[in-house]
Structures are given as structure tokens and as C-alpha cells.
Amino acid sequence: MSGLAVALRRHPELMVAAVLVLSVITIGLINPVFWQPSNIFSLLRASVITGILALAVLMVMLSGGIDVSFPAFAIAAMYLTVKAMIAWGFDGVLLPFAMATGIGVLLGLVNAVFVHYLRMIPLIVTLGTGTAVRGFILGVVGTSQINIDQMPPLLIGFARSELFSVTQADGSQAGLSAMVLVYAVIAVLVHLMLRHTMMGRSIYALGGGTEAARRVGFNVRRTTFFIYGLAGALAGFAGLLHGAMIWTANPRDMVGLELDVIAAVVLGGASIFGGRGSVIGTVLGVLTLVVITNSLIILGVDTTWQRVVVGLIVIAATAATAWRDRKRIA
């Protein structure tokens, strides 16, 4: 095996880090507008929602599955919470986020029941639950978009808060959204959980092989429920945060977002066979994807190319991961 493959297997984050640095330098050379604080800050802000959702997908992928239901769960949590807040005349930050997260957990546990007790492939389970939940929201709860004039002001105020702002060369102000900090805290927590708790180890063990994990003494059922519950919680939280950040609650939002998120996670070096992947890699993967797709405009590329670019990223990243792990599979 070549030295490069060994290095990549030891530090899978190296690949995505190299891609990120390379693309940032290239884009910056082609159009220096890229380096303006406002652009950098907006890229960081744009990676918050995709990033939190990517952590949810990472959990499922580490255990050897794939999840396509999380956009529907996120939208369900967001729409139901905002609807409830308006109906009850309640405004606030902590309780609504607790509610959205709770809705996410409940939906995630449904996935876990199907995956664990009925032993069905996660992709097909989550395809079913995702479609059913979105159908429920649009068919039973409502199809109308809740606009800024109806959105709870405190919630929006929270999402608008900034960490700091700088004055740019042209005199305008550019602020860094405080939501970046929220995302960072969540990422650190998930990282600590994966690396330093028994639950984290058992998630990796499950991805290495369910039967092996069971025989070593890991509780497979508890781990599966934890994975899908946490993935649902992250999705629910991200859903409400998304609504608060764009000041609207649209039940038709986030359609097709699963592909971008999965692309980011795969780009971050996670293997769909489970057991391989890290929070650092995923965070870098999200940043890389956001930088590339959001820079198409300042690069002068027509936005219709975005889907092609995302698809090529998925193919290239999975091919690279397969090449890295080729000894393992054969």
C-alpha cells in the first residue's frame, strides 16, 4: 500500500482539509471579493444548518446506515413549534428549541424501531418515514408559509444576534452570526461524546459490525435508539434554528437538502460502511461544500451547474474513500 493511502487512513481529515485549502486559495485568486469579511462571515453562517444536520447524518453513517428523513423531521419540528407558539401566543427561545428537539427525538425513535426491531435497511426506512412525515405536515397540518410578521420576535432576535462586527474597507459593517458559536458548541459536544464516552465507542463498534459489537458486550438496541434519537434531536433543533435564521417557517423548505448534507459528510471522510468518520472531518466537509457551492456565483459560473458540482463532489469523495478503504473491503 502506498504511503499516501496509509497517511489518509490514519488521518482521513487530511484529504478534505487539503481540498478546502486548495479551493479557498483558488477561489480567492480568481476573485479577491472572496476574502471580504462579509463573504467569509456569510459562508460561516451558511454552514450552520447544513453543519448541524451533517452531524446527525454522521452519527447514522458511523453506525453503518444512511438517513434521508432528517430534512422532513427538521421541517416538521420547525413548523409544528412555530405553529404552536403562534397558537398559544408564546414567545421565547429555550422552550421552543426544547420542543423542536423533542419532536425530533420522537421521530428519530420511530426510525430506530424500524431499523432495530424490523431489521430493515436504514435507507428504505428513512425514505418511508421522511415521505410520511412531510406528507403529514403538508396534508394535515398546513401548507401556508409563516412570514416574518407572524414569526415570534424573540426567536428571530436570538437568531439575529452577532458575536462581533467589523468595519469593511468600503465602510459597511459585517457581523458574524452568533449561531456559528451554537454550531461550534454542538460540534464539540458531539465530538467529546464520540471520542470520550462509552456510547461513542459503541457507535463506532456498531459500524464495525453489529454482531461483533453484540458479542463484545455492547448493548446494540440502546446504541441504535441513541443514534437515531440524537440524529432526530439534531434535525429538530436545526429545523427551528433554520426557521429563526431565515425569519420564515415554510413547510415546503429543505426539499433535496439531504443530498447536500450527505455529500458534505462523505466529503469529510466518513465511510458508509460505518466505523469511519469524525466530527472534525465532517465540519471541514461542510465548510468545503458551502465554500464551493456558494462561490460559483463570484466565480462567474451559472448557478444551474450547482447540482452537477455537488454530484461530482459526492462521486469523487466516495471514490476516494473507497480507494482509501479498498484493502478492508476486499
Binding site: G128, G130, T131, G135
Partner: peptide, 12 residues
């Protein structure tokens, strides 16, 4: 949308 809900439920 309701038909979607039923399709999804049917898959499960």
C-alpha cells in the same frame, strides 16, 4: 400530500 403520507405509511 395525504397520498404521500399514505405511500410512506404503506412502505413502513
Amino acid at each position: 400530500f395525504l397520498v404521500d403520507l399514505i405511500w410512506g405509511g404503506f412502505l413502513l
